Deep mutational scan, measured.
Amino acid sequence: KQVQVGDEKYTFDTPEEARKFAEKVAKEKNLKVTEKNGNFHVE
């Protein structure tokens, strides 16, 4: 599963790991997490 933050992409083995990372980054940057096709976008 992938997490996209701006132009950066991070790959994780499980959706749970990806979601945790996305939520942590979103909180730090005051952004929101959206899920698209099983991948997460922080925007």
Rank of each mutant, 00 (worst) to 15 (best):
F12R: 00
D13C: 08
T14G: 05
E16N: 05
E43S: 13
A18K: 01
N30L: 06
A26Y: 02
E17Y: 00
R19F: 09
Q2L: 14
T34P: 03
D7W: 10
P15C: 09
D13P: 11
Y10D: 01
E17G: 05
V42E: 03
F12Q: 00
T34G: 04
Q4D: 06
V3S: 01
K9V: 15
K32I: 14
D7H: 12
N30D: 10
N37Q: 07
G38D: 05
F21H: 03
K27M: 12
T11V: 13
D13F: 07
G38Q: 04
A26S: 05
P15S: 13
R19D: 02
L31Q: 09
K24E: 11
Q4R: 08
E43N: 09
D7Q: 12
E35Q: 09
T34V: 14
E23N: 09
D13R: 09
E23G: 04
N37E: 10
K36P: 03
E35R: 06
L31H: 07
L31N: 05
N30C: 10
G6W: 06
V25F: 07
E17W: 00
T14A: 05
K36D: 09
E23D: 10
P15V: 15
F12H: 00
T11I: 13
K1A: 15
H41K: 09
E35M: 14
A26I: 03
Y10W: 11
V3K: 00
G6F: 11
K36F: 11
T14L: 05
A22H: 01
F21R: 00
K9S: 12
V42D: 03
G38F: 03
V42R: 00
A26N: 03
Q2F: 15
K32T: 13
V25K: 06
E35L: 14
L31P: 03
V3P: 01
K1W: 15
K1G: 14
T11S: 11
V3A: 02
N37F: 08
H41V: 15
N30Y: 06
K24C: 07
G38H: 04
K24H: 10
K9Q: 12
K29M: 15
G6A: 06
A18H: 00
V3T: 02
K20E: 13
A18F: 00
N30G: 15
E35W: 11
F21V: 00
F40G: 03
P15Y: 15
N30V: 04
H41P: 02
V25T: 07
D13V: 07
Y10A: 02
K32H: 11
V42H: 02
K27D: 08
K36M: 11
K29V: 06
N37Y: 07
N39W: 14
V42W: 02
E8H: 13
G6Q: 06
K20N: 11
V33H: 02
V5S: 03
G38I: 01
L31E: 06
K32D: 07
K36C: 13
K27L: 13
F12L: 02
N30M: 06
K1I: 15
H41R: 10
T14S: 12
K29F: 14
Q2V: 15
R19T: 03
V3Q: 01
Q4P: 00
G38L: 03
A26H: 02
K1D: 05
E35D: 07
H41Q: 09
D7R: 10
Y10R: 03
H41L: 14
F40W: 12
E23Y: 14
G38S: 04
K1S: 15
R19S: 05
K24W: 12
A26P: 00
F12P: 01
E28D: 12
G6M: 08
V33Q: 02
E16D: 11
P15T: 14
R19E: 05
T14D: 12
K20G: 08
K20M: 12
F12G: 00
V25C: 10
D7P: 10
T34H: 10
T11H: 11
D7T: 12
Q4L: 15
E16K: 04
N39E: 12
E28Y: 05
E28P: 04
E35C: 13
P15L: 13
T11M: 13
E35A: 05
F12D: 00
T11A: 08
K29L: 15
K27R: 11
R19L: 10
N39G: 09
V42N: 02
E43M: 12
K9G: 05
K29C: 13
V25Q: 06
V25I: 14
T11L: 13
Q2A: 10
K24T: 11
E23R: 03
Q4C: 13
K1R: 13
F21P: 00
Y10E: 01
F40C: 00
Q4T: 14
E8P: 02
K29Y: 14
T11Q: 11
L31T: 08
N39M: 15
Q2Y: 15
Q4M: 15
V5A: 03
K9H: 13
V5D: 04
Y10Q: 02
E8C: 12
E23S: 05
V25R: 04
V3H: 01
G38A: 02
K1M: 13
V3C: 01
K32L: 10
N37W: 06
V33N: 02
E17P: 00
N30Q: 08
K20D: 12
A22F: 04
V3D: 01
N30A: 07
F21L: 01
G38P: 02
Y10H: 06
N37L: 07
V33R: 02
K9I: 15
V42I: 10
F40P: 04
K36G: 04
K27Y: 11
E28K: 06
K32A: 10
E23T: 07
D13A: 12
K36L: 12
E23H: 10
N37H: 08
A18E: 01
K27W: 10
V25D: 02
N39Q: 12
H41S: 10
F40L: 12
K32E: 08
V3R: 00
R19V: 06
G6H: 07
K24Y: 09
V5H: 05
G38N: 06
V5K: 02
V42P: 04
D7K: 12
G6K: 04
E16R: 04
G38V: 01
V42C: 06
R19Q: 08
K36H: 12
N39Y: 13
T34M: 08
R19A: 06
P15D: 10
T34R: 07
T11P: 04
E28V: 06
F12W: 01
N39A: 14
K27T: 10
E23L: 08
V3N: 01
Q4F: 15
K9M: 14
K32R: 10
H41N: 08
T34L: 09
F12K: 00
K32S: 11
N39V: 15
N30F: 07
V33W: 07
Q4I: 15
R19Y: 09
D13W: 06
K36I: 14
D13T: 09
H41F: 15
T34N: 09
K1E: 04
Q2R: 06
K27C: 11
D13M: 08
K27H: 11
G38W: 00
F21N: 01
T34I: 14
Q2M: 14
E28L: 08
T11C: 12
A18I: 00
E8K: 14
K20H: 11
K32P: 07
N39K: 10
E8D: 12
G38E: 04
K24R: 11
E17L: 08
K1N: 15
G6S: 05
E28N: 07
N37C: 09
V42A: 04
A26Q: 03
T34D: 05
A26G: 05
D13G: 10
K1Y: 15
Q2N: 10
K29P: 06
Y10I: 04
F40Y: 13
K20I: 13
F12I: 00
E28Q: 07
P15G: 09
E28S: 07
D13Q: 10
K24D: 10
E16Q: 08
E35P: 02
V5F: 09
E16I: 05
A18R: 00
T11N: 10
T11G: 06
A22T: 01
R19I: 07
Q2H: 14
A26V: 03
T34S: 09
E28A: 07
F40Q: 02
V3I: 02
F12N: 01
Q2I: 15
A26K: 02
E43T: 13
A18T: 01
F40H: 03
N30E: 08
Q4V: 15
K20Y: 11
H41W: 14
V42L: 14
N30W: 05
N39F: 11
V42K: 02
E35Y: 14
T14Y: 05
A22R: 01
K36W: 11
E28W: 06
V42T: 04
Q4G: 03
V3Y: 02
K27Q: 12
F12Y: 02
D13E: 11
P15H: 14
K32C: 12
Y10N: 02
Y10L: 04
A22D: 00
E35V: 15
V33Y: 07
K9T: 15
G38K: 03
E43K: 08
E23M: 10
T11W: 15
E17A: 11
K36S: 10
V5Y: 09
A22K: 01
Y10K: 02
R19H: 06
V3G: 01
P15N: 10
E43H: 13
R19C: 06
T34C: 05
G6C: 07
E17I: 05
E35S: 07
K27N: 11
G6N: 07
H41E: 08
